[in-house]
Every structure is written in structure tokens, then in C-alpha cells.
Design a protein around this nucleic acid. Sequence first.
DNA 1: TGTTTTATTTCGGCGTCCAAAAAAATGTTG
DNA 2: CAACATTTTTTTGGACGCCGAAATAAAACA
Lengths: 419, 419
Amino acid sequence: MREKADSDLVRRQNRLLLMEALRQHGAMARVEMGRHTGLSPASITSISSQLIADGILEEDTAPHVPSEGSHRRGRPTTQIDFNPKYANVVAVKVSIDGLELALADGRGAILARRTSRTATYDADPTAFGKLVADEITALLAKARVPTTRVARVGIAVQGVADSQAGTVVWSPAFRTRNIAVSSVIEERLGIPCRVANDANMIAEGLIGSDRAGYGGTAAVVFMGYGVGMGLIINGQVYHGPTGAAAEFGHMNHLPDGPLCRCGRRGCVEAYVADYSLLRWASGNAATQPPSFNAIPEAHMLALEEAAHRGEAAAVSAYAKAGEALGFGLARIIAILTPSRIVLAGPGTRAMALIAPHLNRALEAGVVDELRRNVAIEVVPIDTDMIIKGTIDRALRHVDREIFAHGPLMKRGRELENIA
Amino acid sequence: MREKADSDLVRRQNRLLLMEALRQHGAMARVEMGRHTGLSPASITSISSQLIADGILEEDTAPHVPSEGSHRRGRPTTQIDFNPKYANVVAVKVSIDGLELALADGRGAILARRTSRTATYDADPTAFGKLVADEITALLAKARVPTTRVARVGIAVQGVADSQAGTVVWSPAFRTRNIAVSSVIEERLGIPCRVANDANMIAEGLIGSDRAGYGGTAAVVFMGYGVGMGLIINGQVYHGPTGAAAEFGHMNHLPDGPLCRCGRRGCVEAYVADYSLLRWASGNAATQPPSFNAIPEAHMLALEEAAHRGEAAAVSAYAKAGEALGFGLARIIAILTPSRIVLAGPGTRAMALIAPHLNRALEAGVVDELRRNVAIEVVPIDTDMIIKGTIDRALRHVDREIFAHGPLMKRGRELENIA
DNA sequence: TGTTTTATTTCGGCGTCCAAAAAAATGTTG
DNA sequence: CAACATTTTTTTGGACGCCGAAATAAAACA
């Protein structure tokens, strides 16, 4: 409630409303837009024709296939969708053992991908931005898309990202801290760029795919090579004052617990992440420093099997993990009482081993009254979710910050990139 | 971004903008309103004259005292402020040993107060709503204000309040759980009523007194007979999906820790609250159940003095409290990275004893990069803050839900109470 | 071919904003 | 003390975006 309202705001808001409906439900006819937005048919006509004139949307020229829904009377609908060629976005996922890039069109469809297996841990941190810029250039070259048609770059990274400063504050993928990224990309390519935490991007993707289901407050926990969390508060991913937030993995579980990658002791991650499980199973968790290498899936499968066979060390590792996760979630519930907690990632394969201990910890850790309103679910999420979420977020940002404004600011600085 | 925009929204938004400026900075001239809201003088004239016609605002009739600011040329300003007689609100504070009530006018000035020392712990829970309603009736009778001129009742309670259901889910002030309150008040008095957590109301009061200072994300921790927290997220008090949230006091610190009033073990409150400190000092914290009585201030002063004298048991009690508080805050920081954490309440008297342990725990509990951006302050807050915050919240709600709408819904159901 | 049905567009009216000009109310000055 | 300067507030006229109602478009049906 801080912005003054005038006809400009009305236009922006309603254009955005219409675009959001389109992002969520895909191509639709004008009548449907009316249903989704609550706007009158007259207004829908006016807004959509402007968006079409701006080149942002387009009418579906293909004659509507009458197969579906049998034969209906009346004037047929004309589907409208985003003009895929109007704007592109690039998503980059940085992980411990390399980069993954994707180029998407204005509808969010992926046009090209690129993977590079450069371990960046020990690399010169100043070179990192350049590397990413070069990779993006190569990706665009392959797809024959000029830089000027890319409206935005989104970068998802494990660890703490400061999206205001555009830096990677701390990440297990780098030895050094505070690595500048956004500024380098923006200077080299001239494309607005934003760095964010990878778990937040999963949350972003989930919102994109099911806005109603993630409408209120929810927490998405990623378990795997690390432990991350995306926090959805009032239907929006919470990024905190600086963009660095929801570091569930590095929330303390027990003082003086085992060493974590972040340098502290007793973090949730130091019990639940891949390397932590292996370390517990190996028996000397209290003294052993954390591993900084990527862990092959086979190792984890072997550990799971050992636990299923009943090997004491393996069983106890999952018990410790369940307890740490349970108390961690109990603490989240006490603070935020989310209506939904989603567990995702490869770590959930071992859910059967973890669950009993998790539930016991939850019961011990939080008042019944609060716990009862929280649904805890395990959702299998393909790893591409991070890329998809990053694309989603970038497109939604472009919708809001550029497309919503309309012809009045055609000459605004932010539009340069769409020419 | 979910509401359709039309001229109705524009009117609501700008009326509200103007009223918010008035709430925050007090009576002001039209020019000033323009500065605060960004609206043109023409619009300010139009909006303010409508609000005056509605009876919500009034011009200051008193000839402007020229003393301040010496002699200025030009047409003098006419101050505008809320019409104090247009709407009243009632605030009720429920604590372990009684009720405290206050009646405020439309400007937030307190017109009358009332206190009742009825211990409610063992009382018939169904009688509680009736008791509150009777107390309100008595308060209004004393002030000669008819029920119909009270736009809203706000009730602040220690413990978990479900403001959607209008119930006290769990509170140390009651033996029983899920006590209905709002519905009883609404039926008996016909005034809309809302229950909320007391620490949240402190946060609400702080926002009201210094909106800029609490603009982003902040946590207000109350330490005293219990431990509560109000969470400000993006400038707004976070109430969670049901209205029950930010139960920092009942966030687990250590599994299998000492018993807490909530029935669990190891909550932050079981280390930091008055009764917990006394229990630790008495030596047998592990086995002793928590006290449910109000604790006289003298006991706490004696304990503080004992600790200052260096008595081992007392010193160690504060050390435990500092550690629990420190790790608790560290966990909050990991999840939300608030830019500000405010400690308040009588418990902060012993801050000198607590601080070293608190700081050590913070260092051990959260990555430097996150901790560095958080300012932790101790703010002395008079106990009336809860009443003031409750009044503030009630008035702001009336502004938004009733006054902002304007003449078009003069006949709307919510206005019945203002006649 | 005419009728029915559904989708979309056109038209006129309404509410709110704003810029600019006018009016109001006071201080300053010769 | 009258004319001018200065500041606040109101009035006026135009713009924009929404909406309801009527008109138009494009089919299926009979």
C-alpha cells in the first residue's frame, strides 16, 4: 500500500493480471481471460489488442482444432498467447561440478541447452563471471539468438546469494567468498542479470506450476548434495532484505555438532546432506571434516541399501538425519507455521529410513496445535526444476518490470534489451 | 497482484494512502499530504473534502498558532486530522493475572481505561468471553460511549491465538485450550473483534511509531514472564496462515531440555523466561515442572542481584538463558536474515549478564556473512506498548476496511457499527 | 436460408487523476 | 493603506481506463 494510484497503475496492474493468467494457464481465449482476471470483455479486448500491438502477445493463427470438446455452437474463440519471439531469457545453474545453461523463448519453452564441466572450486574467482558470460555467448551463438533479444539472465547457485549486490556471498562451489557475478554479465553482455539461491528457484518453479497450491506460506526443502530451502510467504518466494535467506541447511541443530561445509558446527546440513550421511556411516563424524567434492550417486545408493539391510552404522546415520531434519522443521513451524512443507531432492529416496525419526522429533519439538495445521509431503522433483524455476522467475520479472508498463515507456532504459 | 484495478481501487488506495500519512505523522495541511502521498494538490483537495464530508476527517478550526516557524508569508495552511468522534476502538490485554482495557478515539487517544484482576487460569473457559464482554460494557458505560460507535475490539493475549477462528488456541493464562473469544464478543456486543498474540501487538506498535525503522524484516522479542516474538516481514507484522505464528518462545532449543509451560521439552522459553531462570537457579531444572503462577518482580530482582554478586547458580542460569537465546536468534537469522532484532521486556534488565553468552552462541550458530547484516538492539518498551499496538492495529484495520471504501458502500454491512 | 448461440468489438458514460489557471489569504513594501 | 509577493487551496478542462449495452462476427443448427 505504498504506491499512489492513477490510471497508469491501473493499466500496469491489469496488463500484468492478464499476463499472469496467461503464464499460468497457457494460451487462452479472451473470454477465459475475463474469467481469470475479473475484467469485462470490453476491457479484455482493449488490453489484449494493445499487448498484441506491442508485440508481446499474438493471436493463434492456426484454425482452432475442433476435435476437443466436441462441437460447440457460436463464434469460435481465438486463442492468445505470448509471442515467443519477442523476448528470450537465459537460465544458468551453478553447481559444485560445473555449469548448466538454458535459453528459453517468451513462452518459457527451452530452445537450447549447454553444459560445461568446469570445476570452479579452486578457480580464480574474478574469472568466474567471464566464464559464465562466455558460456552464455556460446549458447546464444548455437541458437542464433542475438544478445539484444535476451531480456534477462537468471543465475541459480547453491549457497548464499546476495541478489541486491549481485554476488555469491558464500557457496560450497567456491573456495573464495563474495564473488561478483551480475555486474560482470551486465557489463560484458549488456543483459540485466540476477543471482539467486537454487532452492528458492525450485520454490519459484512450484509456484509457477501451481499457484493455488502454494498460495499461502510454504517451505520447500531440498535434500541432496546439500540442504536448501525455499520459503514461500504469502504466495511469494521470500528473498529477505539482501536476497540471502532461508538458509535452512545452515540453521544450527545442535551446538558443538559435527563440522559443516560452512565452517560452523551442528548445522542441519551436517546431519542431512549426502556427505554428512556418509560421514556418520563411516563412524568418525565428530572429528572428520566435511567433504567438498561432488558425491557419486552410487555411494548414496550403497548406503541406502546398507541401511535397508540393517547395518548399524548406516541405520544410525539416517536416524541422526531424521532427528536433525525433524527438529529443524519443528523450529520452522514454531516460527512460521507454514501450511505446507515439501521435501524434495535425491535425499528423499531414503525417506522410509528417515521418516520415523523425523516424526518423533516433530512430536517432541513443537506444540500439537501448531503442528496439526502443517502438511508435510514428499514431492519428487526432477533436477531440471531449478532451471525451469529460474526461467519462470526471469519471465515473470520481465512481465512485471517491462511488459506491464506498456507503450508509454517504450523508450525506458529497461526496454533497450528488447529493441 | 491479485486484485483487478479500476477507479474503485484507485479511490480506495489513495484514500488509504492519505489516511496512513495522517496516522503516521499526525494532523497536517493539504500541501503536506501531497508531499507524503505523491498526489497532486488537486487530488488532495478532492479526496480530503470527500473524507471530511464522510465525517472521517475534520479541518482544524482553531486559528493556526503562528508562534512556531516564525512569520511566513502566503495563505496559511489549514490542518486536517481524523475526526476523533467518528469511530472508537477498544483494546483488551489478557494476561496471567487479569484484564486490562482501554477505549480510544478515532485519533488513537485513550479516553478511558479499566483493569480487572480476575485470575482466569482455572475459570470456566466458556465464561471468559462473557467476562470480556461485560468488562467492555462497563468501560463504555464509564466513558459514556454507545456500543454503536465502537468500530472494533482488539484482544491481545499471551500464547497462540488463531485470529481466523477468533480463539485462544493455547495460552499460559488458561488451563483449557481453544477458547472462543471473538464470536462471543461479536454476538454479545455486535462489534467486530479480533484476537491476536501480544508480542505481535508490540511489533504493530513499533511499526506505528516508526514505519521507516521497521520497514523491511525485523523481529521483536519480548522477554519476561514468557518469551514472545513479533515478526515483521516486508514492513508488515506476519500473522501466518491462521494468525498463530512466531512462537519463538516455544521453538525448541535443545531436544530433551527442561520442561516448558507448553508441555514440550527444551523450548527457548524454558531457558529464558522468568520462571525458567528461577528454576535453573534453584538447581533442579531437569526435573522440576514449570510454574504457572505470575512471578513477582522482586524475585527476579533478587536473582539478578545474586548473579551480579557472583553466586554460581544464578550466574549459570543467565548463562544458560544467553546460550538458548543466542542459538534461537541464530536460527531465526539463518531462516529470515532480518535486518533488525529488537529485544524488549523486563527480561532485558539482566542483559549485561546474558549478553556475553548470547554473543558467543550467535557466533557459533550462524555464518558470519548472515550475522553481519543484523543489528541486535535492546529497546526498553513500556508495558503499555501492547495496548497501544492493539489500538493502532484496530484503527489501521478500520481505515483500510471501512474508511477507504468511501460513500459507495455507505450501506455495506461493515459500516453498521459506525451508523 | 434463417435462427440460435457464443465471442469479440464499438460506443457512450463515469470516475479519478493531473496540469494549469484562478481564487484565497496573508505578509511586505513604498 | 494600496499594490505586490507569496503560499495554499480550489476550480476547470482534458486524459485515461473501466464498464454496460448494443452492435457485429462467426460459427452450428434446423
